[in-house]
Simulated assay, not measured.
Amino acid sequence: MHREDRMKGQTILVVDDDADIRQLVSIYIRNEGYEVVAVPDALQALQALEHATVDLVILDVMMPGMDGIQACMKIREAYQMPIIFLSAKSEDMDKIHGLMSGADDYVTKPFNPLELTARVKSQLRRYHMYQQPEEPSSVLEIGHLRVDEDTRQVQIHGRDVRLTPKEFDILALLARNKGQVFSVEKIYEMVWKEPFYKSDNTVMVHITNIREKTEENPKKPIYIKTVWGVGYKI
């Protein structure tokens, strides 16, 4: 397979509050055939991940507001793609802290852009090597909805759907028990694994979010049905 074929569709998210660094990294990454999404802070990075399929994240550590360490841990709650830190901190403990937060590599500033692109390629090769599809041992299919409990991936009409960990757990619980009605209290206790408080609307909010992401018309859902006065079912 040609290099252009391998890279087609691969997107790199560049997160750095320094506009010059964002531009420099973006130029070198694009020259290697990748698509680039560049944003100046962690909050915009998290938003970008919800709206685009990202194959690798280049993440600055020192940013105002939410720093790179916090952003990395937040990303790791829902995503498995490689994360490469950029940082002016070069001490061993800084690198260890960064890697322990969930990053796959750590590049110190000032950096050689060619070395960074080489590390991007290396991380992507390694990631896709271990992501080679295997025969799934637990795939739930309801109509056009596909829930893979092993990889925690969801697809609707073949399109990947990004769910938060709790949203996935709720969907998987209902899909695993197709036709069974679960009360709000039961869903909360099984997913959050803690006592349910009567005034808590957390489950309802998560169900609404799942419908927004999986249904063509969330107001008339065909997957997660409301059983009035009882709970929810698929």
Rank of each mutant, 00 (worst) to 15 (best):
V25C: 06
I84N: 00
H157V: 10
P82E: 05
G179E: 11
S137M: 08
E134D: 06
V120I: 15
R22F: 01
C72D: 06
G33D: 01
E135N: 13
A118H: 14
D16V: 03
V14K: 02
N31M: 12
I96E: 12
E4Y: 07
V161W: 07
Q47E: 15
V39K: 04
E91S: 15
I84T: 00
H51V: 07
Q153Y: 01
K186C: 09
P113W: 00
E212H: 03
M204W: 11
R126S: 10
S137D: 09
E167S: 12
P195T: 13
K198H: 10
T108Q: 04
P218M: 08
D67Q: 03
M100Q: 08
M73K: 11
Y223Q: 02
E115F: 12
L171V: 04
R125K: 14
P195A: 14
Q131H: 00
D200I: 05
D20L: 13
Y223M: 10
V184Y: 10
E216S: 10
V61E: 02
K186M: 11
Y130P: 05
K233H: 07
S138A: 13
I27L: 14
V14E: 04
I210L: 08
T151R: 15
I75M: 10
I21D: 09
K186S: 09
A38Q: 03
I75W: 00
A48Y: 01
R211P: 03
E77K: 12
M93G: 03
I224V: 15
L13G: 01
M190Y: 09
I12D: 04
L86I: 12
M190V: 11
E4M: 13
K8P: 02
Y127W: 11
E212V: 01
A45L: 05
A71D: 04
A103V: 04
P165T: 07
I21N: 13
L24E: 05
I84H: 00
V203W: 07
D16M: 05
A42P: 01
I58K: 02
F85S: 06
D17H: 10
L43Q: 08
D17S: 14
K178A: 15
T117I: 15
S137W: 00
A19T: 11
